[in-house]
């Protein structure tokens, strides 16, 4: 079975969010980069678990980004995976990214494509769904469990207010979230092995973006907390009713 895991580079979860060039660009100054947590903790680790159960599983990683994404993809290789592909396209338009991944997916004829349920920078949650249309394959979003049984995938996904389990033949695209697997830390052996794993660079083939970012803004600062004495809960209820008007 061939698995393609989509990897995105994102700022660390605690990174300070600031913008430059007249609020048109994310300020990368001093930012630590990580593998998008949904891609790493859930989809990549789940793929590695599948390989640990079945040595015939082959894991390829793909990222769409400039050369500065390579440390991230090497770190992913240190966790596991057989080889990686970087598509040299720095577009932030999901449609462009999805088309680049679709081209790689078509060439590799994968049985299973895993993505994170969203990235923590642009929060688009779009790549899996776009691949579904571009590849005309089954897609299950926001999955919390995934088992492979021969040529069949058994997937549990989040629905509003609960969970739903479904079966589908391979190939399938699954976007992964919490529940799928537990975070791992790369060990020294993995880090050493990652240095010699193949990392292929493919030139960009899609240039036409459908969207463009005009401007970033930070949320208005809160006007400041109003402290209420712990013995004055009637006062808090009154404020929630009459000032905030939320109860």
């Amino acid at each position: 079975m061939k698995v393609l895991v989509c990897i995105s580079k994102t700022p660390d979860t605690t990174a300070k969010i600031a913008f430059t060039e007249g609020n048109t660009k994310f300020d990368e100054n001093g930012v630590q980069w990580i593998i998008n947590p949904y891609d790493e903790w859930y989809s990549l680790v789940r793929a590695i678990e599948l390989k640990e159960k079945d040595a015939n599983v082959i894991i390829h990683l793909v990222t769409v980004g400039a050369a500065d994404a390579e440390p991230i993809i090497r770190k992913a290789l240190a966790l596991g995976g057989d080889e990686a592909i970087r598509v040299n396209n720095s577009s932030s338009d999901s449609m462009v990214v999805a088309q680049e991944i679709a081209a790689i997916a078509k060439e590799g004829a994968y049985d299973l494509i895993l993505t994170g349920k969203e990235t923590i920078d642009y929060n688009s949650a779009s790549i899996g769904s776009m691949l579904c249309a571009l590849l005309d394959q089954n897609y299950i979003a926001a999955a919390t469990k995934l088992e492979i049984d021969g040529t069949k995938a058994i997937v549990t996904r989040e629905i509003d207010g609960g969970e739903e389990t479904a079966e589908s033949n391979l190939p399938i695209i699954v976007s992964c979230q919490k529940g799928m697997a537990e975070q791992r830390i790369p060990n020294m052996r993995g880090i050493m092995a990652a240095r010699t794993k193949p990392l292929k660079v493919v030139e960009a083939s899609i240039q036409t973006a459908t969207t463009s970012i005009q401007q970033f803004d930070l949320p208005a600062a809160k006007s400041g907390v109003k402290l209420i004495d712990p013995t004055q809960m009637d006062e808090l209820v009154k404020l929630l009713k009459e000032e905030a008007k939320v109860i």
């Binding site: 999805a98 688009s124 779009s126 926001a142 459908t210």
Partner: peptide, 22 residues
């Protein structure tokens, strides 16, 4: 929501439409 996120980007692909989610 869960279903909207799962299909809106695919619909955008099929209609050659640009999409903004969220």
């Amino acid at each position: 929501n869960t279903n909207g996120k799962a299909i809106a980007p695919a619909v955008a692909v099929k209609l050659n439409a640009g999409i903004v989610t969220g």
